[in-house]
Amino acid sequence: MSDDLICVGAISGAYGVHGEVRVKSFCADPEDIETYSPLVSEDGKRSFALALIRPMKNGFVARIAEVATKEQADALKGTQLFARRGQLPHLPDDEYYYTDLVGLDVFDTGGTALGRVKSVQNHGASDLLEIHAPGATTTVLLPFTKAAVPTVDLSARRIVADPPEGLF
């Protein structure tokens, strides 16, 4: 995947029989996903002109210009939707796109390496950094809060963490 692409949503399946799809938005303001249209697939080879029709539980009903049947909509289930970085708003200094955090090295406040960010997860309460420690078979979920992660340095590709006692 290109660093130029940011995942802003996913197609979760067909809606009805006329080619409409269910879309889950990952944007801070969920309806903003439409403003980044046309969206592209992860490989950048497919383009989707997305138009939101109405909100629904956990997302939106949307129309994609090239999709006319339920079968075509079903075939798109699970497709992630990406916007080009230049289409997205610039973030304040203390906010980050998930994709920018993945792969960063994590150190504690004393400089000891804790691991590397494998993914960023959010199960409803707050963001969690999934950290894979060198030589470990499991990962650790570190709360992505100002207290637990006081420093994110994207240019140096590192995070300084002050994890809760006993986490690592």
Rank of each mutant, 00 (worst) to 15 (best):
D3N: 13
D3W: 10
D3E: 12
L5F: 15
L5H: 10
G9A: 12
I11L: 11
I11Y: 01
G13A: 08
Y15D: 14
V17D: 14
G19N: 04
F26Y: 15
C27P: 06
C27R: 07
A28W: 13
A28K: 15
I33D: 07
E34N: 08
T35E: 11
P38Y: 08
L39P: 10
L39H: 03
V40C: 10
K45A: 12
L50W: 05
L52Q: 04
L52W: 06
P55E: 06
P55C: 06
P55I: 00
M56S: 09
N58H: 11
F60I: 06
F60P: 00
A62D: 04
R63M: 11
A65H: 08
V67G: 03
A68W: 12
Q72H: 04
A73R: 03
A73S: 03
G78V: 05
T79E: 15
Q80E: 12
Q80A: 12
F82A: 02
G86C: 07
L91N: 02
P92Q: 01
P92I: 05
D94Y: 01
E95M: 07
Y96W: 13
Y96L: 10
Y96R: 10
Y97F: 15
L101I: 09
L104H: 01
L104Q: 00
V106R: 00
F107V: 02
F107R: 06
F107N: 08
D108W: 04
D108K: 02
D108M: 08
T109A: 04
G110Y: 12
T112V: 04
S119V: 06
V120S: 05
N122Q: 03
G124I: 02
G124Y: 13
G124D: 01
A125H: 10
A125V: 15
D127K: 05
E130T: 07
H132D: 08
P134M: 07
A136W: 09
T139R: 07
V140I: 13
L141V: 02
T145R: 09
K146S: 12
A147I: 00
A147V: 01
A148E: 01
V152T: 02
D153A: 12
R157L: 03
G166L: 04
L167I: 11
F168H: 09
